[in-house]
Write a protein that binds this DNA or RNA. Structure first.
Lengths: 142, 142
DNA sequence: CATATAAAGGACATATTTATCTTTTATCTT
DNA sequence: AAGATAAAAGATAAATATGTCCTTTATATG
């Protein structure tokens, strides 16, 4: 469903949301080591997220990454889409190029409702909310 | 969610269920061309499905593949598992090695219920049923 | 039995994804 | 301004998934 890249992205973003701020920017090194992701690979991912303004970066000493208030209000879905594009989510479950309600594949009625529920939640809930759960110890990211 | 391989497997198996029988065995060539899958690649996939007795094969003239009554009663989930293993289905949505109800990831409460619904349907409904829908024109596989 | 047919098996090729490394650019601190 | 720090950028490497090809084995049919 999600590529390895966007899994690292989701975990990395949540880690930033929990632990970083303007006054406490974090390097890819610290994040990668804590979420168990290859550091240089995560750095590339953060680079792309920064290009799309989904996270904030600063160079130089005391530099690093964090999410500003606006970005904390964003969704994990936009993080996933930034990395994977729409493809993985919207494509037919059994890989038919043209699969729709009008021209459904054999299991069309099964997959999309479930997928849509998931997508809607990933869109509706803010990254801030997910971070809050993690802070409370309700969930973990490593 | 599903690898390309198991997508071909699902489409191929349904095609066999619809069009093949003991008296009308089909070659990988006919199936591949009709479900829009690379023929030699599909041949490999059928080989593996046959090893696990999920489809039946016969060599020589008039040889080919088909599903016997027993196999028609089987599930698409076993086809998918034969090709992909359990990994793709059971693994954590954001890739945590240890993610469970006790030690949930940030989105653990979202994904599994949906995934389980899908898995249960893929387990409960027989391949015969899926084939019936396709025959009735309710769904398609190419 | 000889021949043709079609799957089985294994080696090979390509593409994509994942991961690493090195150099450059920006910026904070002294 | 000089040096140190950390991200940006781009090239390269490794691993995995996808796809192809060729030889061997089994078997139905004349």
């Amino acid at each position: 469903m999600l590529s390895q890249q966007s899994k690292y992205a989701v975990r990395g973003v949540i880690y930033l949301a929990v632990h970083a701020s303007v006054n406490r920017k974090l390097g890819s090194k610290e994040v990668g080591e804590n979420i168990n992701a290859p550091v240089p690979f995560l750095a590339k991912i953060f680079q792309n997220l920064n290009k799309e303004k989904l996270i904030t970066s600063a160079k130089g000493p005391k530099g690093g990454f964090f999410l500003n208030e606006d970005q904390l209000s964003g969704s994990l879905l936009s993080v996933i889409k930034c990395i994977d594009g729409n493809g993985n989510f919207n494509s037919c479950f059994i890989g038919l190029p043209q699969c729709s309600d009008d021209n459904p594949c054999s299991i069309h009625h099964l997959a999309p409702p479930l997928r849509n529920t998931l997508i809607n939640e990933l869109k509706r809930r803010s990254i801030r909310e997910f971070a809050k759960d993690t802070k409370k110890g309700k969930s973990h990211i490593f």
